[in-house]
Design a binder for these strands. Structure first.
Lengths: 352, 352
DNA sequence: AGTCGTGTTGGTAACGTTACCACAACAGTC
DNA sequence: GACTGTTGTGGTAACGTTACCAACACGACT
């Protein structure tokens, strides 16, 4: 034991400093090892001593130093790095909540970071999380350069990709069945007789956007139709840019009769454009000619059912996606298995 | 240096195991101390050696073990615990984003947890975060038992309260000017001539709810009016329960002519109730008698401007609240100061 | 030539924890 | 009464890092 010859400062330090296992041991009149054993579950410790130790723990307000514990070989940190693109999008907030729901049940904590769709920021976060020795990573990949997510770069830290896949990287993955959802939504519009259907979405370099466009295209093909290139607008990532794109479409000589929107940001922009148009027409007292334009949008969002337009949404469960991602990670951690990576695909549902 | 006499296993281990500062030192032909110095900023290290070290770091993909580093006395973990009540509420998601925006600039990472308004869960999260030696805490307190947030319990870990205060706990705080906002919104309704104004909100035991009710009450008093008790409904915390409460109000013999809603969950419930009523009246072809009911709601929410009702919202900047909370914490960390706790109050704005 | 700084480098120890080994105490067996 | 096994307990070392001190080399000055 360390000798404390400086009486006055020692007392002062004892109050403010966080108590260690050593302090508890001294207080209970046992060795640090016994304290450690009690806290680990109390196997083969005499009941009387166990009580003394627990009393000392309570009295000093002792908390195990998790950082020191995880330093020992074979010990986990109990930390998971979660990198999402943007929590302010309710879809990813739900995802985070689902992840936490599953992992907190295992006493695992979340280190979260927002990449803002920036691969460089994502790489930086991954590097930092590795430095903190997370037990695993759950990432919504931003795309672009993904070398930092390769197996070689991560070592033996398990990775779960959420919402998006990456070409060339094999890892546990949870995604939405984007293709089927977009197919179903688009088919509904075609079934209703629409032939001039606009598409609004993110850049097709984004995994989900590409898949949703594929579903959009497939629905056309299956119906013997073709996608009309001049009605396709890909590249909007927020409501404002989507609104601009939609207003541009409405000004076309031959505007679309229906719109397929590939995500909730774009859908909201579309709805704003439609309302702006309706308002501008209502001034001269005329009935707006395109107010009955049909909209189908991927992703549900709060109040979608309160919109004063003909709108259907392709809904899916972001929280469940987060839960599944958490479960895949737990499976990897529990059994130290090298099974082939699993891919979970969650269904969508067209809400009428 | 440790002698590795087991040649075969050592090689295998070298590939999968995370490299340490020792490995880098051996690889560069210097001592671990020199590597540490280079990584700390490279003061008084010969340029040639510095280069060799950096090359070894790059080649081995070495990452400093932050947990081991923070074990040393005087060293920080660079971790902040953020406890919010529920990320799936966009208001708190924005708050989290604001906190991250400010703290990631200081290279501080976020440990996040959702309390779900449960004080026991909050206490558990605080205890865990203390065990991980966070440098500080940002908490949206759930209320109830708050002993775990007392200065005695936290030791010298700085605490910032966000969005809500706690009686008896002095800490840096960032809140919205709830009273003024509610006063302004209610006054607007009174100015328009409304005399039967309903109130819907959370339990008044929640800090913000109480303050917003106070503002509601003060607006009445200042206008020489009194709050009508039968029109007050406090206790709804989600849209579904709020909708029920509002429907009940609409069925009163003498229903309110206007509604003040104290948060976005309640506002959405109110709007749903109004729409349900409008739909039920539209069946017999009758004009609904209360469709022109006025609504003013605290908190803005996405698409609030697209609602087919007369709605004003009292908006405020949740992300800015998060930023301010982060800044207060950084200030506490930077200078190791014992200044009196600061209280920042953010303004609201009635959106017409 | 000897002394003194100055700049560069490495050894040692410690942060708080737990795995491993050693050992003591005790009961049961021949 | 010596031997064996079981249970409870503590000492030691190590995880990866950095603060501190000691030591070294080297040029500049007396």
């Amino acid at each position: 034991m360390t000798v404390r010859d400086d009486t006055e400062p020692a007392q002062h330090r004892r109050i403010s400093a966080v108590p260690t296992i050593h302090d508890v041991a001294t207080h209970a009149g046992v060795s640090p090892m016994t304290v450690s054993r009690v806290l680990a579950g109390g196997t083969s410790v005499r009941p009387a001593k166990m009580e003394r130790v627990l009393a000392a723990v309570a009295e000093l307000g002792y908390r195990k130093n998790e950082n020191a514990r995880s330093l020992r070989p074979g010990q986990r940190t109990g930390l998971i790095g979660v990198i999402i693109t943007n929590v302010s999008n309710p879809y990813y907030a739900e995802l985070q909540l689902g992840v936490e729901e599953v992992l907190s049940a295992e006493n695992i904590r979340l280190l979260v970071g927002n990449s803002g769709e920036d691969p460089a920021r994502e790489r930086q976060l991954v590097a930092d999380f590795i430095g903190r020795h997370v037990d695993g990573l759950i990432v919504v990949p931003a795309g672009g350069d993904t070398a930092h997510l390769s197996e070689r770069s991560l070592g033996n830290i398990p990775l779960v990709l959420a919402s998006r896949e990456i070409e060339g990287i094999t890892a546990d993955t949870v995604i939405i069945d984007d293709v089927a959802g977009a197919f179903e939504g688009t088919s509904q519009l075609i079934r209703e007789g629409h032939r001039r259907i606009a598409y609004l979405g993110n850049m097709t370099s984004v995994f989900t956007s590409k898949r949703r466009f594929d579903g959009f295209e497939k629905a056309h093909k299956d119906a013997g139709l073709e996608v009309i290139p001049e009605l396709v607008r890909a590249g909007q990532h927020d409501p404002a840019t989507a609104q601009d794109a939609m207003e541009e479409l409405l000004r076309l000589p031959d505007p679309p009769t229906a719109v397929f929107s590939a995500n909730n940001r774009n859908t909201i922009g579309v709805l704003r454009a439609l309302r702006a148009e309706a308002l501008s027409y209502s001034l001269p007292g005329d009935t707006p000619p395109t107010s009955d334009i049909r909209v189908v949008g991927f992703d549900n969002f709060e109040l979608s059912d309160m919109m004063p337009f003909l709108l259907n949404v392709i809904e899916h469960d972001a929280r469940e996606l987060g839960r599944q991602a958490g479960k895949l990670l737990i499976r990897r951690l529990r059994e130290d298995n090298n099974d082939a990576p699993r891919k979970v695909q969650l269904p969508t549902h067209l809400r009428i």
